[in-house]
Amino acid sequence: MESCKVVENIYLLVVVTLISVLQNVFFAQKVERECKNRNTSGSAFQRVSCANRNCMDAYPTFLAVMWCAGVCLSQAPAAFAGIIYLLVRQKYFIGYLGQSSQSTPGYLFGKRIISFLSLMCIVGIFNYLLWRFYGSDYKEYVETITNAASALLLLP
């Protein structure tokens, strides 16, 4: 029964992580396809390779802050932000295949989501420290604010 309780607290994060893995596979296949067609268009290969590398550079940070935010504060808004981040990352990747300037909005939006998740981490850890050392638990209040604030991620 205890393991079901643990899974209940993280299953949304697990789903988003698995979706992100599938997205990474998609990106890798695009790079491989362009690599095979390299003789036709070298610049297309360079763009897709660079887009993939940029996405992979930010991937560990995304996973770390999403999991930290979900475990330390609330999984639903963290998973929601994770899904939005994956959509933005897809937009960035596809935008990069055209002209690199088309990827800028996706890049900036992705930074905002990473910042939101980082803030969730900090608040969750701070709340834990308040509870641990002072006996004050504000988690319910913070979760309510976080759930409402996560909807603001949809604003461009």
Rank of each mutant, 00 (worst) to 15 (best):
C55H: 03
I114Q: 04
C35N: 12
D57F: 06
A78I: 02
Q46W: 09
L22P: 00
V88N: 05
L154F: 13
R38V: 13
C55T: 04
C68T: 13
S150Q: 12
R47M: 09
L129H: 00
Y134M: 09
N54R: 09
Y138L: 14
A51C: 04
Q102L: 07
Y11I: 09
T104H: 07
C55P: 00
I145H: 10
E8N: 15
L154T: 09
Y85S: 03
A79D: 02
V16I: 15
V123A: 09
K111F: 10
M66I: 03
F109G: 01
L18N: 00
E32I: 11
N37C: 07
L13E: 02
S101P: 00
R38D: 08
A51L: 03
L108D: 06
L155Y: 07
W67T: 02
C121M: 06
L129S: 05
L154I: 11
Q29R: 15
C50Y: 08
Q99C: 11
S115R: 12
I10T: 10
R47Y: 08
V16Q: 03
R89Q: 09
A148Q: 06
M56A: 15
S136W: 10
L130D: 02
P105H: 07
I114V: 15
G70R: 06
L86G: 09
Y141L: 08
F80L: 06
C50L: 11
N127K: 05
I145K: 15
Q90L: 15
I114A: 04
K30D: 00
R89C: 00
F116R: 03
M66A: 08
Y11Q: 11
T40N: 14
N37E: 14
S41T: 05
C35M: 14
R47E: 04
R47S: 11
A28I: 10
F26K: 13
I122Y: 04
L154N: 06
Y141N: 10
N39M: 09
V15Q: 06
P60V: 03
R47W: 02
E32D: 05
R53C: 11
S136Q: 14
A28H: 09
I19R: 00
E8I: 04
Y92M: 04
C121T: 07
Q46E: 14
T104P: 01
A51I: 03
S118F: 08
S74Q: 06
S49R: 08
M66K: 06
Y107H: 13
K91R: 15
V48I: 14
N37V: 00
S49W: 09
I113C: 03
F62M: 05
T40Y: 07
R112W: 11
M120G: 04
A76D: 02
C121F: 04
E140C: 00
Q23I: 01
K91V: 04
S41E: 11
S3E: 10
F62A: 01
A81N: 08
T17F: 02
F93A: 06
E140P: 01
V65P: 05
S100G: 02
P156V: 02
I125Q: 05
V31F: 12
N24G: 14
L12I: 04
V71H: 01
F109Q: 13
E2R: 13
F93P: 08
C121I: 07
S100W: 06
Q23S: 08
E8K: 14
L86C: 12
G98V: 01
K139A: 09
W131R: 09
S20Q: 05
E32M: 12
V14L: 15
Q99H: 13
T146R: 00
E32Q: 11
K111N: 13
R38W: 11
